[in-house]
Simulated assay, not measured.
Amino acid sequence: MTRALVPPVWRALPRRALAAAAAVGLLLAGIPRMQSGPPDPLVSLYALRAAALVFALGLAFLLDDPARHITAAVPARRPVRVALRVALVAPWAALCWTAALLLVPEEARPPVGALTLEAAATAVLALAAAALVVRRTQATEPGAAISTWLLATGATAFLLLPPHWTLFVTPTDPRWQSTHTHWALLLTAAATTTALATTEPRHPHTPQPH
């Protein structure tokens, strides 16, 4: 049954949003190579962070499905349909992120593992928000609202979080390690939320007689 779902799920993917996010993200990641003179590690760091955010904005559209209320009636359960979408897009997302890292000159490239953790947490946070909206509302295309929320959340985290909880520091900052512990916690929480939000309700709500 899962194999039979692949073609329709593939056709239903928001390919325009994903392609646009990939193009803009890679353009941002290439900014350090466009500068004259030696590449600046700080510019490279924030270029990659901007690319990660844009990639996540594209993934915010992953669960958009204008035919949601029709496909909900198919035998395959919601976790299978969501997992299939993620499985189809994950290699593309990994390829885009790898290309973004390689676009940054090696001598100015920030620690790859730490930045990949940030990118993964941001992407899964977008998926978690989309999954929650799909579960709790009748929205068929939550991507635009989620992307707006993600931008606002990123700006808030950058500007308003207290120093001991900041998520955006440089590799030379003594808080670098502790900050990435926070990123790991955020990734774990977002992944758990996504998994819980994509499960089928055990007891569908039914109106109670008066």
Rank of each mutant, 00 (worst) to 15 (best):
G143E: 09
A73H: 13
L125H: 10
P66Y: 05
L185A: 15
Q208D: 12
G25Y: 07
D65L: 09
W92L: 15
A12Q: 11
R85G: 11
V89N: 00
W183S: 07
G58K: 04
L132N: 03
H69S: 10
L13P: 07
A50K: 00
G154P: 00
A47S: 15
T148Q: 11
P14L: 04
D65I: 03
A128Q: 09
L18A: 07
P171G: 06
A56P: 06
A144S: 12
Q138S: 13
A56K: 03
L103S: 04
L28V: 10
V74F: 09
T116A: 15
P38R: 14
A47W: 04
R15K: 15
F61L: 00
E118W: 11
P204I: 06
P8H: 06
A144E: 11
T179I: 07
S44H: 03
L48I: 05
P142N: 08
L45Y: 04
C96V: 14
A23E: 01
A17G: 06
A29F: 06
P14V: 07
T116H: 04
S147N: 00
V169C: 12
G58D: 09
H210Q: 12
P209D: 11
A157G: 06
L167F: 13
A131E: 06
T181D: 08
V134H: 11
D65Y: 03
T170F: 02
L117Y: 04
T71G: 00
W165A: 14
F55E: 02
V6C: 04
P105T: 05
C96Q: 12
L196F: 13
A108Q: 02
P7L: 05
A29H: 08
P111D: 08
T2R: 15
P207F: 11
Y46V: 10
P163N: 07
A191G: 12
L45V: 01
F168Y: 14
A195P: 01
P162I: 07
T116D: 10
A67L: 14
T122F: 00
D173F: 05
W149P: 00
P41C: 08
L150E: 03
T148G: 12
L167C: 08
L95N: 00
